[in-house]
């Protein structure tokens, strides 16, 4: 039997990991759902978020300032990128945007290397306090990360179901042409969605920074997991993304208690199995193009 204390901390660890993956994957998923683009550059905003948490956190002495700065900067960069680049390629095939955004991601890694060099940077955990959860000492920072993900999920849900812009986005995920036909500026909806996605990726990077080393390749390393999450959950589905982020977080975390190297591989096997049963993921829509 696995030690209960180990299991509890493993589950908490998995929840916090899943939370960070969720923050990243939700942007990717929303962008696909609405604009039919595969936006790999989200992982660049994630890296920028982490580096901002490092630099601004060091300069101001407050980690939370760093995270806020990372979120804002990521949002700003994604705004510029959307206006300059994605705007021109929305009409194309999704894989077209994937290549373009991969170029952005690689180019962005070059920019990061230019500013921060290749040496990994450590970010200090803002609070080392531990709390007692079912008799196990758990770092409170991990609970804060989970809290952020819950707030974001509820926030996104309220935004999509209670505000008129959110309703327009939901309608446009279903049929963008009809939304245009009503006279709603879809171009603005696209920008709003992309910036939200970018900012959430930046937030994810900032929150992840104290748990890992910040280095230029961090985006590429996280990418595989985020991919597997959106694929397992189904591209474009928010609910699917949440569920599969939680599952993958648990598999990686609890799995690594059993046998560490295999835990990293398990999500891939899971993905293959899901795809075998449902080629479009758990909650993905079967439609190909609009």
């Amino acid at each position: 039997m696995i030690d209960t204390q180990l299991l509890i901390s493993g589950v908490i660890f998995g929840l916090s990991l899943g939370s960070i993956y969720f923050l990243l994957a939700i942007g990717l998923s929303l962008c696909f759902g609405l604009m039919r683009i595969i936006s790999l550059d989200q992982l660049l905003y994630y890296s920028f978020g982490a580096y901002m948490a490092y630099t601004v956190g060091l300069a101001t002495g407050s980690f939370w300032f760093g995270v806020a700065a990372g979120t804002v900067v990521a949002g700003l960069i994604s705004f510029i990128v959307e206006r300059l680049i994605f705007r021109r390629i929305y009409e194309r095939d999704p894989t077209f945007s994937m290549i373009t955004s991969f170029g952005l991601l690689i180019g962005g890694i070059g920019v990061i290397k230019f500013f921060w060099g290749v040496v990994p940077r450590p970010v200090e955990v803002p609070t080392v306090i531990q709390v007692d959860v079912f008799g196990t000492a758990v770092p409170v920072y991990r609970l804060i990360v989970i809290g952020f993900a819950i707030v974001v999920y509820v926030g996104i849900w309220l935004f999509l179901h209670r505000t008129i812009v959110g309703k327009a986005i939901r309608a446009a995920i279903e049929n963008v042409e009809h939304v245009e036909g009503l006279g709603i500026n879809v171009s603005r909806l696209f920008t709003i969605t992309f910036v939200i996605a970018g900012a959430l990726s930046g937030l994810a990077g900032g929150l992840h920074a104290p748990l890992i080393m910040v280095d230029p390749m961090m985006g590429l390393e996280t990418m595989a997991f985020v991919f597997m999450i959106v694929i397992i959950g189904g591209l474009g589905s928010i609910k699917g993304t949440l569920i599969s982020a939680l599952i993958v977080g648990q598999v990686v975390s609890v799995g690594s208690i059993i046998y560490a190297p295999m835990a990293q591989m398990a999500p891939f096997v899971m993905m293959l199995l899901v795809l075998l049963v449902r080629p479009t993921g758990l909650y993905g829509s079967p439609l190909y193009k609009r």
């Binding site: 008129i164 309703k167 327009a168 309608a171 939304v179 009503l182 006279g183 709603i184």
Partner: peptide, 9 residues
């Protein structure tokens, strides 16, 4: 909501 969207536009 369908009508709300048209009103919004």
């Amino acid at each position: 909501e369908n009508l709300e969207l048209a009103s919004y536009a």
